[in-house]
Design a protein around this nucleic acid. Structure first.
Lengths: 204, 204
DNA sequence: CTTTTGACTTTTAAATTTAAATAGTCAACA
DNA sequence: TGTTGACTATTTAAATTTAAAAGTCAAAAG
């Protein structure tokens, strides 16, 4: 593949991200994206075999961006506890930017393709590993008591994810948070309690 | 209303619960329920003005049963921490019994009626109050450190609810028993971490 | 006077059809 | 290597129909 072609692919993904986050994946047509980057609809297929591949590319890019954000948040956190809290900030920024990427309830199978599942699983594992590393760091410095880092990392991430799902699934229904900023502040409270549970209190 | 009539109403609710938990609310017709209690479809309307009222009666009954279960679990728990864990057992029993009562995704408005919302809100408040009382008890006994009992109670219940929603959202059907027991064990881990965060560690 | 019923209407849900938009193919051309 | 015109195939949304269930009510029955 020539540099120009790769360049076009990058342009396409960027246009797709712009469209997707404005109108959602389902309501964006390939014709529109192609038009944005001065391609005919047919020419698009030269760069991406089909819409799925494009979506996969978009999601892959987003995931990297997110993981990078988390990593940076971790790196600049002076303590392990602060590293954990920094996840919320990163999530906040991320969802503010990409909130419209959610799929309509009927079309979630798009995201079920083996391709995308793999991306998701990999991202998940990276997140767990990164958070576990922070927990290890907290244990090494004496900030946290001894716990199973990986297991606990999974648990913490799970809770945050569960909160998001519940909030989305539950817009007009039962409980949880009313809007995103409230969601974040709820998650913060949760993390405070969890982190308190991790702290290393010397026994008398 | 005569005693017999109230008796019939009770029979109807019981039949409804049986049908609902076998086939779900949406797939159960009034004709079937009426038939179960040897009434004609029209006679049913003499006892309940419409399906909503019946559903409300059913949910009210379930809620009471659940709250009673929690209360009993709390009463028989020797420590505050064990009281918190007992919630899981109660939930487990409850959902094993009533898991099929979930509504299909499109018809959730049934549950949005002011009537049912009120029931739910009241139940929610009771749960928070009951759990807060346990937290107070834990603080009084020195088992827990000083925290805002009501706020924390809400938080803990929220987390459990969020987990359930997330689990439901993942499957596109109903929650099945197998997933559910796994859900419970996850929730247990979460509670362990949370309770650890509540514990009272004397400072040196 | 309470409870039930027969004969109705209205509402809701599910299946079917249709029309239009979008996705995807491919041979030929630059 | 990229692009295009001319095509077919799929998907989606809207309109239409049909059957089932919900709900009403006057009148009958105990």
């Amino acid at each position: 593949m020539e540099p120009e072609e790769r360049e076009k692919q990058v342009q396409i993904v960027e246009a797709a991200i712009r469209r997707f986050s404005h109108f959602g994946i389902a309501k964006t047509t390939l014709a529109e994206i192609a038009d944005d980057v001065s391609l005919s609809r047919q020419a698009f297929f030269y760069y991406y075999h089909d819409k799925h591949q494009l979506i996969a590319a978009v999601i892959r890019k987003m995931f990297h961006e997110f993981v990078d954000g988390v990593e940076q948040g971790f790196r600049s956190a002076p303590t392990a506890a602060q590293a954990i809290f920094s996840i919320l900030k990163t999530k906040d920024d991320f969802f503010k930017k990409y909130s419209l990427l959610a799929l309509p309830d009927n079309k979630t199978e798009i995201v079920q393709s083996p391709d995308l599942k793999k991306i998701h699983t990999r991202g998940q594992k990276m997140m767990i590993a990164m958070l576990a590393a922070q927990l290890e760091r907290g244990m090494a410095s004496g900030e946290f008591r001894k716990i199973d880092a990986t297991r606990t990392a999974r648990l913490i991430l799970d809770i945050l994810t569960a909160y998001e799902h519940a909030a989305q699934h539950n817009k007009q229904g039962f409980v949880v948070a009313e809007d995103f900023s409230q969601l974040i502040s709820r998650q913060k409270e949760v993390l405070e309690l969890l982190v308190a549970g991790l702290k290393n209190y010397p026994s008398i």
